[in-house]
Each structure stands twice: as structure tokens, then as C-alpha cells.
Computed example of a mutant assay.
Amino acid sequence: MTEVARGLAGEQRIRYGDEIIRFRVRVQPDRRLPRVAIHVEPDGRVLVDAPSGATPASVLAAVRKRSLWISRHIEAARVRHDGLQGREYVSGESLLYLGRRYRLKVAVQPAAQVHAALRGAYLAVTVPQRAPEPIRDALEAWYRQRAREVLAQRLEAVAATLRWVRSVPEMRLRSMTVQWGSCSPAGRITLNPMLVKAPRECIDYVVLHELVHLLHHNHSPAFYRTLDRHMPAWPALKKKLDGMAEDVFRT
């Protein structure tokens, strides 16, 4: 274990005025740049990437130096989150699918089976009674089914362009509150079913990101060089996807 890992394991915190900034440190042994990189995730979490040669003091100094920047980004994430109310599951609400907005249209038919389908500009849900729970369940089932089909198609399409991918990896869906996807050491790709709400180009970015992990199971400079080579526009797509995060995850 490196010095920085021993000294800054788990959640860390510093004080900035009356505010407490909490963050986690990720040690990256293959990180060539000597500086510490700080990221504020869309949900307001602060992640600090540090090379293995960094000391706890240098990491803390880097976080303190950028305290104002971190504080502003945390506040922006909080404002975005507070501006999004929970869904009421009534006709007229806006829903995302593949980056486009559709209107929820609820039909109540006492003898009907719970069902959801895309019909023109509407995502139509039929339920036997007007209550939020069956409407929410119908939408979640519909999104998961569409995710199973669309994400599998995109995984196959993107994998076909990569020389190091010999066969399409196993894919599974798992609901996650802050992650779009992951790649296990065994090479299994896990994707968030809510990703199907995002535009196709953003889906392809997440899929490529995880497939590059089959070659580089870290976020080293080599990882990002490979990502750059196959999708030069990925930073803009990541920014677009992160900007949609609260709306995508809203329930």
C-alpha cells in the first residue's frame, strides 16, 4: 500500500469557511502526470485522483488550493438536484427515451393488464387503477426491456470496431444511482438500464468506456489515449451525459 493510500484511506474532509468538503482519494499507480486531479461528480461527490508517489500532505494541499472551485461545483450540483421534484406519474409529465422527450399518457381501464408502450409523442401507460405505484412499475419494466434490447445492440456495434474485443462480452443490467456502467476483472460489462434514456451517442460513449477497460483496467494515460483514438469527442459526450444525470435518475 502506498503512503497516500495509507494516509488517506476512506472518506476525507477539509474545512472551507463554514463548509465541510468531503472527498475520496483514488490512487492511480499508472498516472504519469505528477499532479493531483479533482473531479466533482454530477451528484456532488468529490473524487481526487492521485499518483502513487503523492504524499497525503500534497493531496490535502491540492484540495485546499481548489476549495473555492470545489465548493462552487458542489453547490451547482445541489441546485440542480433541488430543482427536480419527484414524479407524480400523471398524464403530461415529461419522460426521456434515447435523448428525446415524450409525454406520459395514463389510461385507466379496470379490467386491463398493466402495460406501457411508445405511441408517437407519448409514452402511454394503461393501468387498472389511477395510482402512482402501478404506473411507476409499468414504466420501469418498459425502460428495462428497452434497455435490454438497445444496450445489447450498441454493445455489439461498438465492440465490432475494436480489435482487442474477440467476442461480445457478457452484459447485465443493474440499477445504480450514480454510475452509468462498470467492467469487472473477468470482463463482464454492467450497464445502468436508465442509460437508455440518453442519446445513442452518449450510450456509445459509456459502452466504449467500459470496453476500453478490457484493455486497460484502470484510468491510466493509456486508457485515455485509447478512448481519444476511438472517440475524440468523448469529453463533450461525457459532459452532456453528466448534465442529464439528475433528470435521468429522477423517479
Rank of each mutant, 00 (worst) to 15 (best):
R163S: 15
K240H: 02
R166C: 03
L98T: 00
A54R: 00
V206Y: 13
V178Y: 03
W142A: 02
R24P: 04
H81G: 00
L195D: 06
R148C: 01
P169A: 04
L47T: 04
T177Y: 05
V158S: 11
V40Q: 04
A77I: 13
R225Y: 07
R229I: 01
R22P: 11
A112M: 04
D137N: 15
A222S: 11
A76N: 14
V165G: 06
P235C: 04
H73R: 04
A157K: 12
G10L: 14
L84C: 06
A186R: 12
V46K: 12
A112W: 06
P51E: 07
L208E: 03
F249G: 10
G243H: 03
E140K: 12
R154C: 10
K240N: 00
I70Q: 01
Y102A: 12
R250A: 13
L118C: 02
L151G: 05
R87F: 13
D247M: 11
A50S: 10
V165N: 00
A138C: 07
T226R: 04
H115Y: 14
E133P: 12
V212Q: 09
K239V: 07
A37D: 11
V212E: 13
A77D: 07
P29E: 06
L195Y: 07
S184Q: 11
R15Q: 11
P185H: 08
H216R: 14
E201Y: 09
A121Y: 11
Y89S: 08
Y16T: 03
R35E: 05
M231S: 05
S182H: 02
I135V: 15
D204N: 15
S167D: 09
R166L: 04
A138S: 09
F23C: 01
G120K: 13
S175Y: 12
K240W: 01
H219G: 13
K239G: 06
V206M: 10
S167H: 07
F223Q: 15
P169Y: 01
D43G: 01
N192H: 08
V248C: 06
A157W: 11
Y16A: 05
L96N: 13
L96M: 12
R100P: 08
G7P: 04
H39A: 07
L139G: 09
L151Y: 09
L95P: 14
R154D: 10
V212I: 15
V114W: 13
D82N: 13
E3Q: 11
P128T: 08
V206Q: 14
D82G: 05
H219R: 15
G44D: 00
E170C: 03
K239C: 02
T55G: 07
R250D: 04
R64S: 01
V25Q: 01
R172C: 12
G120N: 09
D49W: 05
H115A: 12
S91I: 12
G83V: 11
